[in-house]
Structures are given as structure tokens and as C-alpha cells.
């Protein structure tokens, strides 16, 4: 099964971004089943690695003004967090 792909905006220094610990971030779904839902954003609880292969799904990284970084990271989404419950 093809990896799912997400992206996220990192607003801190990339070097300081913590890996392999559960954290809440916003991701956008780049490969939804229904293409109309591409770029849907969600708060998720997830673990992230700067290695592309460590976690099941691919995570593309953008900086605060939208600059796409060349190499993807990987992500394991544990659950979606509903901020409006």
C-alpha cells in the first residue's frame, strides 16, 4: 500500500525540532481518497522523524513563508485532535 503523504509548516529552527516524541501538530492531507479533500488540515497527535523511512507515512516540511524543503521526513499519526468538541 502506497504511503500516505502529509505536509506541515515548521515555524521554529528545523535543527531544534524534536523527534520521536508524541506531539500535537497541524498536518495537511496531500493524498486523500477523495481528491476534493486535498489540503484538509487537522490537529494530530503524532511522532515525527527527520528520517524518511522511520515512520509509516511521508511528511513534507515547509517553512513559515511556504518554502518546501527538499527531503521529506516521516510521521506516525496516533490520533486526530478535535479542537471544537
Amino acid at each position: 500500500m502506497a504511503k500516505k503523504e502529509y505536509d506541515t509548516f515548521i515555524l521554529t529552527e528545523l535543527e531544534e525540532f524534536p523527534e520521536d516524541q508524541e506531539m500535537e501538530i497541524i498536518v495537511r492531507d496531500l493524498t486523500p481518497e477523495d481528491r476534493r479533500y486535498k489540503y484538509r488540515s487537522a490537529y494530530v497527535l503524532a511522532k515525527i522523524s527527520k528520517s524518511e523511512s522511520k515512520y509509516p507515512d511521508r511528511l513534507w516540511v515547509r517553512l513559515g513563508r511556504g518554502q518546501l524543503q527538499e527531503k521529506p521526513w516521516s510521521i506516525q499519526i496516533i490520533k486526530e485532535v478535535n479542537k471544537f468538541a
Partner: peptide
């Protein structure tokens, strides 16, 4: 909202 054709206007935008 995803049933409306909101465009991704520029590459690198934060959303549609």
C-alpha cells in the same frame, strides 16, 4: 467546505 471548489491559489500557501 470541501464540496466547494476553493482553489489552491499559490504554491506554498497555507491552504485553499
Amino acid at each position: 467546505l470541501f464540496k466547494l471548489p476553493g482553489p489552491m491559489v499559490h504554491d506554498g500557501d497555507g491552504g485553499r
